[in-house]
């Protein structure tokens, strides 16, 4: 079966006065129909920008290379008319910062209805009814009153729910959700996750879930990719990766995770050192400077993602577990 979204050797660079920021490096990923792909990784590792590239909405100073196929068609470099037909309707994204992705001087109702009027040529009346129904569905309390609110009049969590609702209005085939639950209390988080699960089942929605919350990703994703300094360093099935992490970065990340069952410590565990400067290209492994297992070869030769690419193979995806490391943990 064809993946709905197929990203090959994606590179994103930003030109700046002080140098070129190489934010996304040779990222290859695919998303099968109805699948959920989880993307985790360090802050600033390129998770958001990789999918901004998929949406074709990078900043003007960006340079993109590689290939991005949506439903079998190349969309990298496609014409604005083609992109506008897909984007916001079949391929949608919920952004990380809900406040800055809503228009401040329009009501929530107007902004939601507009999506349907523009993409599906609905009448305003129908569109507003659909918007109200959707707000109910994403559990915004007192939905009718909220439709008349401006974004600043909603709490952070409500704005996030509005964004999710808005992105589901056109029944997309792929939803990219960038940190969809961070501003929500854990009870609402659970509701949103359930909602996303239902949408997957009802609409055959394929989902990309970018999140720092490893527990949420582990509960929802079929496959998980771990990013570090612009690259995918490890990838495996959702159930497998955290139990049998191979890359020292993934292992370190898991060591930093605490839940209510862990003892109260004086200090929270952190990774030593800092992520590399993305304007530099290191010859070896980007994680070597912070890695307890690093040896001489790690600083000299870049480890390739072992199974070169992690193609979509729905069934044997369970067993595939590529890792970019010279000294991986045994699993």
């Amino acid at each position: 079966m064809q993946p709905v979204l197929n990203i090959k050797q994606l590179d994103v660079k930003f030109k700046q006065s002080t140098g070129v920021v190489h934010a996304v490096r040779q990222v290859t990923l695919s998303l099968g129909l109805g699948e959920c792909l989880g993307v985790v990784g360090e802050s600033g590792s390129g998770k958001t920008q990789a999918f901004m590239a998929v949406m074709g909405i990078l900043e003007k100073n960006a340079l993109v290379q590689g290939s991005i196929q949506f439903e079998g068609r190349e969309i990298l470099g496609a014409s604005p008319t083609t992109l506008n037909r897909i984007r916001g309707a079949k391929l949608t994204m919920v952004f990380q910062d809900p406040m800055s992705s809503l228009t401040p001087h329009l009501t929530i109702g107007t902004q939601m209805a507009e999506v349907l009027v523009v993409h599906q040529k609905e009448s305003w009346g129908n569109a507003e009814r659909a918007a109200l129904q959707m707000l109910d569905q994403v559990r915004v309390p007192e939905a009718a009153r909220r439709l008349k609110c401006y974004p600043h009049e909603l709490s952070g969590g409500m704005r996030q729910r509005v964004m999710i609702g808005m992105s589901l209005l056109c029944k997309p085939s792929v939803l990219i959700a960038d940190e969809p639950t961070t501003a929500l209390d854990v009870t609402v988080q659970a509701q949103i996750i359930k909602l996303l699960q239902e949408m997957r089942a009802e609409l055959g929605l394929s989902l990309v879930l970018i999140s720092h919350d490893l527990a949420i990703v582990s509960g929802l994703a079929d496959t998980i990719a771990v990013m570090y300094a612009g690259r995918i360093v490890e990838q495996s099935s959702g159930g497998n990766i955290f139990q049998h992490a191979k890359h020292p970065y993934t292992v370190a990340l898991l060591k930093c995770t605490s839940d209510l069952a862990s003892p109260r410590l004086d200090r929270l565990p952190t990774l030593q050192g800092f992520p590399p400067d993305l304007t530099q290209e290191l010859p070896g492994c980007d994680f070597a400077a912070r890695c307890s297992r690093a040896s001489e070869i790690c600083r000299r030769v870049r480890p390739e993602l072992s199974a070169a690419t992690f193609e979509y193979r729905s069934l044997d995806a369970q067993s595939a577990h590529p890792v970019a490391c010279h000294h991986p943990y045994e699993s």
């Binding site: 802050s43 501003a183 720092h212 990340l253 930093c256 995770t257 200090r267 565990p269």
Partner: peptide
């Protein structure tokens, strides 16, 4: 809220 666990720490 929008930080990985290490930077959170």
């Amino acid at each position: 809220s929008s930080l990985d666990v290490s930077i959170q720490g």
